[in-house]
Design a protein around this nucleic acid. Structure first.
Lengths: 243, 243
DNA sequence: TTGGCGTAATGGTATTACCAAAGTAAGGGA
DNA sequence: TCCCTTACTTTGGTAATACCATTACGCCAA
């Protein structure tokens, strides 16, 4: 007969997770291990049922979760079924915006984090920006200028510029972070405040100075410009709640 | 008879979304409008079925999606069902880390981004760290020291320390970011490389120096220590693939 | 030979009915 | 008063079925 202590170590905690969760985890694991890659087609629902030895309901729930996470899309019809997709930063921002609107994060919180990231990557940007990067940045600025004259300049265009700057660091992880922040943050701010034309003009001027500094690989100047630029926009959102 | 152009505008693209998606959107909408708040209990599955006029499967799929998005938890049993939750920094970071570890990013990408964030927040940490923060950081270091002697020191404990440092910036958005970095990504690295005892000793010494610098509000010293610390661990990861 | 059309095969979507397991809460006895 | 039992609520999972969307293929005609 085993003592109580022995029994305590004999049995390991049995995991009675939801079946759908187990399936999701297994598929995620396969993705992590590289055995499944974006573009791959998952087996049909019926086949997944057989492989996992479960009925269709949990399998479908798992597919919905993968879909919601941005890991897969499910098509109907012949040649339909689950297809793995590589989660984009856009999808991340989508999910994030839902959560941000509920979470105790304030716009000031997000802005502060954003400043840290965007200022922090400047050394990389100044070092790695290619001629193409610079050209595209100037193009964005020009587009912003004409939009400003038309009165069609939006916060979204400003966001696009900052995202393009981040892309010039040539690190996909950083691109994802910045995209993740800009989407939800600016979408909610856009509703709250119209862009005053003078404000836009000043913003675009600063964008221009920033790209100039990047072009000349002048880190100090770039930092000065961007810090002032971000601080100025930060002050506008200081007391704004995300809602 | 209508002309072709007229017909072109007469019909709008029919988009028969999945029922589960419609349900999710409706609930999200109610949350956004404030008609549903964290802590609220959703109607039971059966009742949702009646209200939406659909069967249980789509309803359950919708609940799974809400769960996966971090907007709700579902309990079984009497008084069970869906309860809306307010997403925490932990939950947000979890989603972020999932995304990072499942996207085609290299360890070097993520490490670089991590360094930018963790170094970037140091000014805030040095400025805002409370006595409690400092005490807890020392506690973590002490726990790490004893664990090291026992041979039970793990990457996870190191991660906990860095997360606690980030929490000392007292910005939930930043906490979320750093938690996102120290998720499954580092856990998978943990498998790849054992912590050499000497390595751990050195790491903990650096942790100690970092907290000392934070305590004395010595930003320059803190930056020097952390930069070296992160660079050292980064070098170990440099040629490691995420797989 | 080739283009278009109809049909069959494929595979997700939703309904219904049913049972099992897990919590909760209320009732009853010591 | 406290604990235990019991009954009920509610989700979790299975199975069978019908239905609809999409694609592939083969046939027929030009």
């Amino acid at each position: 007969m085993a003592t109580t202590e022995e029994v305590g170590t004999m049995f390991s905690r049995v995991n009675v997770d939801r079946v759908s969760l187990v399936i999701v985890d297994q598929i995620k694991g396969l993705i992590r291990e590289g055995k499944l890659r974006p573009g791959d087609r998952l087996p049909t629902e019926r086949e997944l049922c057989q492989r996992f030895g479960v009925s269709r309901v949990p399998v479908r729930e798992a597919l919905r979760v993968l879909e919601a996470t941005g890991l897969a899309t499910v098509r109907v019809g012949a040649r339909g079924g689950g297809y793995l997709t590589s989660p984009t930063a856009e999808r991340l921002g989508e999910g994030l915006s839902d959560l941000l609107s509920l979470s105790p994060l304030t716009a000031a919180n997000v802005t502060e984090a954003r400043m840290i990231v965007e200022l922090g990557i400047l050394p990389l940007v100044v070092e790695r920006a290619t001629a193409d990067d610079i050209t595209e940045l100037y193009d964005l600025i020009e587009a912003g200028g004409t939009a400003l004259q038309d009165g069609t300049y939006t916060m979204e265009m400003s966001a696009a510029f900052h995202i393009r700057v981040a892309d010039s660091a040539h690190n996909p992880a950083i691109s994802m972070l910045v995209r993740g922040f800009h989407g939800p943050l600016l979408m909610s701010l856009e509703k709250a405040m119209e862009i005053a034309p003078a404000m836009g003009r000043l913003g675009i001027d600063e964008h221009l100075k920033l790209v100039d500094a990047i072009r000349f690989r002048d880190l100090a100047a770039a930092e000065t410009v961007l810090r002032e630029h971000l601080h100025r926009t930060a002050r506008r959102v200081e007391h704004t709640r995300l809602d």
